[in-house]
């Protein structure tokens, strides 16, 4: 399907208003609530950290359980999902005011964070960091280089007998001393 439209084909902002769906919102009004989401929940909501439901699928939890839905209808939630908070704030003047405040303060500090230029490290600091990184790299390379050559740990203590001497008598060659290893490892 071709989705590139010329300006003539696109609707004028005033032309297509979808007004026939407006009645779906009729009846919305401010409500009185006995319970309100905490500041922590509202902060999480403003920061888009609140989910619709637990689990990998994240299907809205409001409709999954009849008891939860009942609590939603009574306006007494124990666990707030994003939809729950959104619907609450939409119809609660107190929380609307609070969310507006939280959004304003968040906007302010985000703006400040963006304005502040990223601090560039000075050249002596860069030099020191570079030297430190080189030293660490050299140490790692040296350790890797020397590792196979390092003497293995003796498998036995000096007091322990690691081998066994046996003298075998041979009629042709005479006495032959054979040394058997008693434990694995190098001499």
């Amino acid at each position: 399907m071709d989705t590139n439209y010329s300006p003539q084909q696109l609707p004028d902002p005033d032309h297509e208003q979808l007004a026939e769906f407006a009645e779906l919102f009729v009846g919305l009004k401010q409500l009185e609530y006995s319970d309100h989401p905490s500041d922590e929940i509202l902060r999480a909501y403003v920061a888009n950290r609140l989910l619709d439901g637990p689990g990998a699928g994240r299907v809205g939890a409001t409709f999954r359980d009849e008891r939860v839905f009942q609590r939603f209808l009574q306006g007494q939630l124990t666990r707030w999902t994003r939809s729950d908070v959104s619907m609450h704030v939409l119809t609660c003047g107190v929380c609307q005011h609070r969310v507006a405040q939280l959004r304003a303060s968040r906007r302010q500090w985000l703006g400040l964070a963006r304005q502040r230029p990223r601090e560039e490290p000075s050249w002596p600091r860069r030099l020191a960091l570079g030297a430190l990184a080189s030293a660490v790299t050299a140490a790692i390379i040296a350790a890797l280089w020397l590792w196979p050559a390092s003497p293995p740990m003796s498998p036995c203590w000096i007091e322990e007998q690691c081998w066994q001497q046996v003298v075998q008598e041979s009629s042709l060659k005479g006495g032959i001393m054979v040394v058997y290893r008693a434990s694995p490892g190098r001499f």
């Binding site: 919102f25 009846g27 919305l28 809205g60 409001t62 409709f63 209808l73 729950d84 959104s86 939409l90």
Partner: peptide
């Protein structure tokens, strides 16, 4: 009724 209305909007 208003709460059901809200539930529909939540959906």
């Amino acid at each position: 009724e208003i709460r059901i209305e809200l539930a529909r909007l939540a959906y």
